[in-house]
Computed example of a mutant assay.
Amino acid sequence: MPRETGRKLIAQNKRARHDYNVDETFEAGLVLQGTEVKSLRAGKASLVDGYASIDDGEAWLLNVFIPEYSQGTWTNHAARRKRKLLLNRKEIDKLAAKVKEGGLTIVPLSLYFKDGRAKIEIGIARGKKDWDKRQTLKEQQDKREMARAIRHRAR
Rank of each mutant, 00 (worst) to 15 (best):
R7F: 12
D55T: 09
K138W: 01
L109C: 14
R148H: 14
I66M: 08
A16K: 01
N13W: 13
A125N: 06
G34A: 02
E139Q: 11
V48A: 11
A28W: 07
I150N: 05
F113Y: 15
I106D: 00
L85D: 07
K138T: 13
N88Q: 14
H18Y: 04
A42T: 01
E4T: 15
R126M: 02
G57D: 12
K119N: 13
A149E: 15
V22W: 11
A16F: 06
A149D: 10
K129S: 10
K82C: 12
A125L: 05
Q71N: 12
Q12C: 06
M1F: 05
K94V: 00
L62R: 11
R126L: 02
L30Q: 03
D56Y: 08
D23I: 08
R15T: 06
L30T: 03
R153Y: 06
I92P: 04
R7W: 08
E101K: 11
Q135Y: 10
L87I: 08
G57P: 03
R7Q: 15
F65K: 07
K90L: 05
R3I: 09
L87S: 07
L86P: 01
T5N: 13
T35A: 07
A96W: 02
A52E: 06
L86C: 05
Q135F: 05
K138P: 01
A45R: 05
A59H: 02
G127K: 08
R89N: 12
D130E: 04
S53T: 14
F26I: 01
L137M: 11
D130A: 11
R155Q: 14
N76P: 11
R148K: 14
I10T: 08
R7H: 11
A45K: 05
A16E: 04
I120F: 10
S46Y: 08
L61M: 15
D132Q: 10
D130P: 12
D49G: 15
R134G: 10
R81F: 01
